[in-house]
Amino acid sequence: MTLYERRKMKNRIALAASGVAALIGLFWLVAILGTLLVNGVSALSLTLFTESTPAPGNAGGLINAIFGSAVMSLFGILIGTPVGILAGTYLAEYGKSNPLASVVRFINDILLSAPSIIIGLFVYELMVVPMGHFSAWAGTVALSLIVIPVVLRTTEDMLNLVPDSLREAAAGLGAPKWQVVSHVVYRAARSGIVTGILLSVARVSGETAPLLFTALNNQFWSTDMNAPMANLPVVIFQFALSPYEDWRNLAWAGALLITVTILVLNIAARLLTARPSARQ
């Protein structure tokens, strides 16, 4: 074999390998979603949305867990989003090159990837220990701590995409900075900021580790934010590891619900950011 042939051969092998790698990546996505569909769809039924989690051996649903997840995610987002947006505003509008902003940016990026179980431990020490019991509020705070870095990061990125000429035009008309930001920059970046919020909802609705020892779980319907509250991820965790067939089926149904929700949110977020850039 000549050197030329050898090089061509090597090239072909390497490129084929990278194609195979891409297929492997896709394969896992298909395999996981496929399993979820097969096991989850057969476990779906209307009682999921009408009954609470059952005792072993009984029929039941997931409504208390769905409710708990929705409520805690909602409050988590309500607390975390304003913090994230305002902090992101500081970084983008006032902190292009000051050391404080650089530090905040650095730390935020680390919090973004930090293990979520640490957040669970932190909120346990912060709220559960002083209060003396697990509670939905503790779960909410834990989730909001996960929301903040996501929203902060996307807000900063999106505000940076707003052209400075818009800011200068507004300032030239005599608008003070706070009006420039709130009336012009926020509006221009609105779809991007909403994307960040959607992504954080997606992130939060599947988080299990931070809820394990904050909200804990509750077998019954409960709307008391000061008491432990059922939530989908923890129910899935407990039911999937149980020896009872009914519970495992419910776990699969819950897993399917969560995953479909998250994928829909992810795709919606993508469409939202894709459209304006396509128009430009």
Binding site: L29, G206, A251, T259, I262
Partner: peptide, 13 residues
């Protein structure tokens, strides 16, 4: 999207 799938789903799978 693989990154969007929550860790508990990887666990149960």
């Amino acid at each position: 999207l693989l990154a969007g799938i929550p860790s508990i789903i990887y666990g149960i799978w």
